[in-house]
Write a protein that binds this DNA or RNA. Structure first.
Lengths: 258, 258
DNA sequence: AGGTGCGTTGCGTTGAACGCAACACTCATT
DNA sequence: AATGAGTGTTGCGTTCAACGCAACGCACCT
C-alpha cells in the first residue's frame, strides 16, 4: 500500500538470504542506488540492518530482539511451556508448540528430546505446512473457504514418498484430522521421523495452537509413538483449559502477569 | 532519513510492548489515523504485523522467522555451538554466547544449566550491558574513542550494590578486562548470580563474540566458579581458532552446513 | 595517470504520502 | 428504535517528501 515502506520492508527478506552490498540491493529492488541507500539508512537507524566491516549490509540485532519480544507476547506459549516440559519428562521425545498465522505455521516453542538422536527444527522456523501434524490441525480448523483457499495456494513439495502430493489429498486429510481431533505425520517430512499432535483450543473452541511429539524410527516405531497419543491429547487439553481460563491455574502464586 | 519508513519502523517497537489498536498507534506516532492505517497495512502485507481477532495489531510471524534467519547467518554461532554444549557437559552450568552490535550486546546462543536452579535469560534478549561479563569483554575491545562514546551514552541502573555505578567506573573496569583478557560479573546483575567470561577472537585479533558461564551462589560460590576460568578460556580459544580458520575443523563429516 | 567499481551528495521534478472530513459499523444507553 | 460514542475505513485535493539523475569522492588496480 505504501510504496516507500513496501520497498524498505522488501529489503529485509532479501538480506535474510545473506549479506548484500548497496548495488545488489538496489538492483533486486529495481530502484536507483540513491533510493536504496536512503532506505537502508533508515533501516540502519532503527537497527534492523547492520553494516558489517566490509560495508555490506545484513540483518541487524534489533530484529532479533523484537522477535524475542513478539514471542514473549504470545501468551499461549507462556502457559504451554511448563506442560511441554512435563510431557518431555514423561516421554523423553522432542515436543513442539506451533501456531498458524497468515499462510504460515511456525514453531513457537520446543523442548529437546532426551535421546541422543535429535531432529532438526528451530523455534521461529516455518513448518513444512503440507505434511507436519501440527500444521494439519491448525489448518483443519480454518473456516471452510479459507482452508480451501490456503490449500490451493500452497506448494506440495515431495519430501518423501509419503508427503501430501496435492491440494486434493491435503483437504481430505484436513477433513479427517478435523474429525478425529488429532493428527499424525508418519514419515511425510523426513523418511524416518514420525509425529503425533493434538490441538490447543481457546474458550470459543477454536484451535489457537497445536503441539506435537516427534521421534525418529530408530528410537521408537510409529506404532509405539501412537501409544503416546492419549498423553499428548491430555496435555493439549490441560493447556486448553488453562488458556481459556477454565482451569484456575494452580501453580505458584509468585507467577507474575507481565 | 526517510520519513515514511521511519514512521513505519517506529510502529514495531511500539507493538512489541503489547497489542495496540489503530487509534493508539496513530497517537503514539503523532500522525493521523488514516496515515497509521496505511502504514500498518503495508506492515501487515509483509507479515511483520498481525491483526488479531479483536482487531488490534501485534507483531507478526514473519518477524520471528526473519530473526531466525538472521541468527543462522551469524557464523560464529554455528561454529561455537558444539563448543558451548561440550563446555556445558563439562561444568553443568548455563553457557552463553553474545555479540556486540551498535550499542547493544545480545545473547545469540545459550545452553541451559543442568542444575535445577536456572537463571533467567533468553536468546535475543539484550544483555545488561553495564554489568554483564560478556558485555565488558565486547566493549573493552572497541576503539578507544568509540568505547568512551558508548560508555557515556549508557544508563547505569543499580541492579545490585555491586552494579557498575557510572561511566567512570565502567571505563576503568573495561581497561582492566581488556588487559587481563577475561571478565567476571560477581552479583552485579542479580545478587546471587556470578559469571566468568572469555572472548572469541577473529583472525585479526578483534573480539567478535564473548562466551560466559553463569551460576547462582546456591550451586557454586564465586571462588569455585572462578576455578572454571581456564576451561572457559580454553573453550573460547578453541572457538577463536576455528572461527579464524586456524584450526581445520575436525568433527564428523556428516555435519551438514545448512 | 588513467581506469574501474564502489558508495555518497545535491538538486529539480513529480507523484506518493499526507491530513481532512465524510462515512460505515458495532456496541451501549435511553 | 433512536441516539450517541467509539471504532476502523474511504476518497480526495494539496503539498512535501521520496524519487532518479548526474556529478562527485574515494579506494584499489594496472
Amino acid at each position: 500500500m505504501s510504496q516507500t515502506v513496501d520497498r524498505a520492508l522488501s529489503i529485509l527478506p532479501l538480506l535474510a538470504e545473506g549479506p548484500a552490498d548497496l548495488g545488489t540491493v538496489a538492483e533486486r529492488l529495481g530502484v536507483h542506488k540513491s533510493t536504496a541507500l536512503r532506505l537502508l539508512r533508515t533501516l540502519h537507524d532503527h537497527g534492523f540492518v547492520y553494516r558489517q566491516s566490509d560495508q555490506r549490509y545484513r540483518l541487524g540485532a534489533r530484529l532479533i530482539a523484537l522477535a524475542q519480544e513478539a514471542m514473549e507476547n504470545l501468551d499461549v506459549r507462556e502457559i504451554a511451556h511448563p506442560h511441554l516440559v512435563r510431557l518431555n519428562e514423561q516421554c523423553g521425545h522432542t515436543v513442539h508448540l506451533a501456531v498458524y498465522e497468515e499462510d504460515e505455521v511456525l514453531y513457537i516453542d520446543k523442548v529437546e528430546s532426551r535421546y541422543p538422536v535429535r531432529m532438526y527444527s528451530r523455534i521461529g522456523k516455518p513448518v513444512a505446512i503440507t505434511v507436519a501434524a501440527v500444521a494439519k490441525l491448525l489448518l483443519a480448523d480454518l473456516p471452510e473457504h479459507e482452508r480451501r483457499a490456503v490449500a490451493e495456494k500452497l506448494d506440495y513439495p515431495l519430501y518423501t514418498a509419503r508427503s501430501t502430493p496435492h491440494a486434493e489429498a491435503f483437504l481430505k486429510e484436513l477433513a479427517k484430522v478435523g474429525e478425529q481431533g488429532w493428527a499424525s505425520d508418519l514419515g511425510g517430512h523426513e523418511e524416518s521421523i514420525n509425529c503425533v499432535a493434538a490441538p490447543v483450543r481457546g474458550a470459543d473452541g477454536r484451535v489457537v495452537a497445536a503441539m506435537s511429539v516427534s521421534a525418529p524410527n530408530v528410537v521408537v516405531t510409529a506404532d509405539e509413538l501412537l501409544t503416546l497419543l492419549p498423553l499428548v491429547r491430555r496435555t493439549a487439553d490441560a493447556i486448553s483449559g488453562e488458556y481459556s481460563g477454565r482451569t484456575p491455574v494452580q501453580h505458584h502464586p509468585a507467577k507474575d502477569t507481565r
